[in-house]
Nucleic acid binder design. Structure first.
Lengths: 114, 114
DNA sequence: TGTCTATATAAGTATATCATAATATAATTA
DNA sequence: TAATTATATTATGATATACTTATATAGACA
């Protein structure tokens, strides 16, 4: 959890990545729990490649980490990233999106794949 | 200075706008003082239309306000914007860019137009 | 009024972004 | 091993973005 000095250029890169409704919601969701791709596909009513590509962008700059469990890959925020404190302060101001996961629970689609 | 409930969609719009090195630096600069277009042109070594277009995007969502003084138009952060507290928390984490204005002072180009 | 300076807008172009469709990989299970 | 499921990657196309060049507007001042 190194606190890195924040540079304007890198802050802009991170803000741009977070400046997308899907990615911002994703990041808020996985700030407290891990989610797999199929859950995102369900939540966002998006195609699987679309979700994978959003994740890839976050992964490319190290903002998320992955953990494979069997055939599923779970993603969560990488709290060891130098800019995580910066990211966290932003996410803290964004309203919780956990109701989206609750809907999956109720539908039962969360249990199916995880 | 109404504190608006933050919505993911609108937060994403603002983060996207701030996710550009030029606009982020601009916003940091005018968080504490007003600047005119010609100063930005000088600071960013950019064309005048390019700067005007960046400002327009910020103005279109109400993040900056303008004040005409003679032939110059001075821009500053609109602290009455519902999302200003959100913006401010982000800007507070970005390092000061005032040295860029100091360079203008030293060159004398700041006085010329302002 | 004409000219100069500061700024805005419009048009055009190159590049970036985001989605889809098709295919590849990797683990699971019959 | 073959089929299934979850995910990643690639190619492609539509749209968005950010720059440039050219032009318009608006105030200052001779």
């Amino acid at each position: 959890m190194l606190q890195t000095a924040i540079e304007v250029e890198e802050a802009a890169v991170i803000l741009k990545l977070m400046g997308d409704k899907t990615r911002l919601t994703m990041m808020k969701l996985i700030d407290h729990q891990a989610c797999c791709v199929c859950e995102f596909v369900d939540i966002f009513k998006a195609s699987q490649p679309s979700i994978s590509q959003h994740i890839r962008k976050l992964r490319d700059v190290g903002l998320v980490k992955e953990e494979r469990k069997g055939q599923w890959i779970f993603y969560s925020i990488n709290k060891n990233h130098g800019y995580y404190p910066f990211v966290q302060q932003i996410l803290d101001q964004v309203p919780s999106q956990d109701h989206k996961l609750k809907e999956l629970d109720e539908k039962g689609t969360r249990i199916i794949c995880c």
